[in-house]
Design a protein around this nucleic acid. Structure first.
Lengths: 214, 214
DNA sequence: AACCTTGTTATACGATCGAATAATAACCGT
DNA sequence: ACGGTTATTATTCGATCGTATAACAAGGTT
């Protein structure tokens, strides 16, 4: 009566890592970071807990990998959206809207983001990951702004561009936060409309100069 | 050789609760929410772990109390700062600056804020606390805006006022976040200056109309 | 000064955590 | 088809978690 061992299939390293990271994110989003235990994660990934230490040196390293996955996923979605625009103006507009509408505004994503942010002060690696992504986002925004103003014929010092990027980034972050945390308080397109008209105001454009389809 | 018991002094209920909450916040800020265990909290509060359940029904309830303490503390500081202004314009300006400068921009506070935010999706009580404070902040901002525009003679529909408040709140939140998370990237007054000129832009004021001392 | 209330300590319990180790089965090269 | 490699499972370990309970001492009352 030897109890049979579980049957299993071997997976490629990248595939397995990905599964484990996704399972980690599921746990954090649904159960909080407290509920993201190696056992719970393994359960969701369909493996046993011991396997985690075969792919990561420990739980901490896996959390770091998960943080990277979340942040790069967010910026990637926004950048890809902007690349679908045909003019610098459309690119900028798409980038802004993408950041304050689904799938970027997602309660699950926010939950993950906040859980990791709270680790930045404690863990130096998390701080480094944050900085990487913050600077990448800022750079993307600066590039979009530069192209936009160049097309308009407005010349812009690099300093002003950076200053605009910081403000716009703050506004976008804030609207993303509010719109996601308190989504039931806002109408369908209220946040997106607010984002566009606010950006127009921040850049000292005329109303509709960025948002209108004309 | 009976081992002596610890000597202790009885404290008033409010005092003891406060100590325990402060100790909780210390733990979360320095060790992360994972490190905020009943034993560690009790250690910092100078009591033994069992006492916690004499003042709270459990650890969760104490965390909720701690969350309330953080949020009311933040909004209180900003509102008190605004009340020191003598004109509606000064009140608004002070309110904005207070939200993006110390002691509100404090890495410790941010750490606490994020840790609690990540619980909002999981715990309904945390969601309710968040909503209370968000709405209170929005109301305070709307009141400041109403007074400001009334003094200027600009009439403003309630809808526009709300819309402004949402945008301003987002900008303030975002700058608070960036300025605190990445404080070493910015010069002394860069964030505060950026906040004021951005608010001017958002409200479609002329540059300096809000910020200048004139 | 003896008593009563209760804030506080001390200790124990069961559950669960992350990590380590040994056994095993799946896949690959031959 | 077979043997070697190793990805994966299974099991165990010590530490630590939140909670429960009992013993105790501090401070007020009479």
């Amino acid at each position: 009566m030897a109890s049979a061992r579980r049957t299993y299939t071997r997976a490629s390293e990248t595939e397995r890592r990905e599964d484990l990271i996704l399972a980690t994110l599921d746990c954090i989003a649904e159960l909080g970071i407290q509920g993201a235990t190696v056992r719970q994660i393994a359960l969701r990934a369909g493996v046993t807990a011991g396997l985690i230490r075969h792919y990561f040196t420990g739980k901490d390293q896996m959390l770091e990998a998960a943080y990277r996955a979340v942040m790069t996923g967010m910026t990637k979605m926004a950048i890809e959206a902007s690349e679908q625009g045909e003019t610098p103006r459309a690119c900028l507009r798409r980038f802004i809207v993408a950041n304050v509408t689904p799938p970027v505004t997602d309660s699950r994503t926010l939950s993950l983001w906040a859980a990791f942010i709270s680790h930045i002060q404690t863990d130096q690696t998390f701080a480094a990951i944050h900085r990487e992504n913050y600077l990448a986002f800022l750079e993307a925004l600066e590039a979009l702004l530069t192209a936009f103003f160049k097309e308009r014929g407005t010349d812009l010092t690099q300093k002003d561009c950076r200053s605009y990027a910081i403000s716009l980034n703050a506004l976008i972050d804030g609207l993303w936060l509010e719109g996601t945390l308190t989504s039931d308080l806002f109408a369908e397109d209220e946040i997106a409309d607010s984002a566009l008209s606010s950006v127009e105001a921040l850049l000292r454009l005329k109303p509709g100069e960025l948002a209108s389809d004309a």
